[in-house]
Amino acid sequence: MSRYRLEYAINEKIRFLSHRELMTSLQRSLRRASFPFAYSHGFNQRPKFSFGPPLGVGIAGLREYLDVELVEEIAQEEYLQRLQQQLPLGIEAHRLVLVPPGDAGLGKFINCACYQVLVPDSLGISWDKLLQDLEEGDPWWYERPNDGKVFNMSAGIIKSRFQQDEGDLYLEFLLKIGPGEVPVRGLLDVLSSKANAASLPPFRTTRTGLYRQENNCFISPMGEIEVIFEG
């Protein structure tokens, strides 16, 4: 049994898939590419997949991950290329690596995510001030519509900052995943209402990376140490 980790991107064209729809699409793509899946035992045998934290509907993802168990070791490059030919428009497979034995798995490993939120420049808002208020002022509350659960948005944010790049304005957030996690949809809703932009289309949002934060170090699920929120 060998576990492989796939790094892939969900681009603008396909960001509206739900997590479940995405899982099905990827599973079928891997089937078409003839990946030799390992199956669970028992009544309802399923291939053994595990996905990184779900991406919200409408949000693009630059580096997303899934683990799949295979019955044998494969030629990674060859299978990556095969897979690339079988993916629906908008999903891109970037890397495929063998997961070393003893790896905790994506669910246990990942504890934070980086998001980039493109904001319109027409609002005449001091975004720096808004973020400062979010991190240091009174809590920003959000009530999730489907179950009425209330979240303190500020508590889910590890870091945030405002950036400007060639005329584009965007906010960057480092958010907790797992304990203390808040819904990204809620953060966007609250932001847009604080910015008096509720009538505008939702802010374009991209998840730019998933990490494990240990002290001040950010490790990607591919095992690389990365520098984020600097420069």
Partner: peptide, 13 residues
Amino acid sequence: RVGRAARYLGTEW
């Protein structure tokens, strides 16, 4: 803004 937006993408395999 709509539910099940994947219905309208048109990029099925």
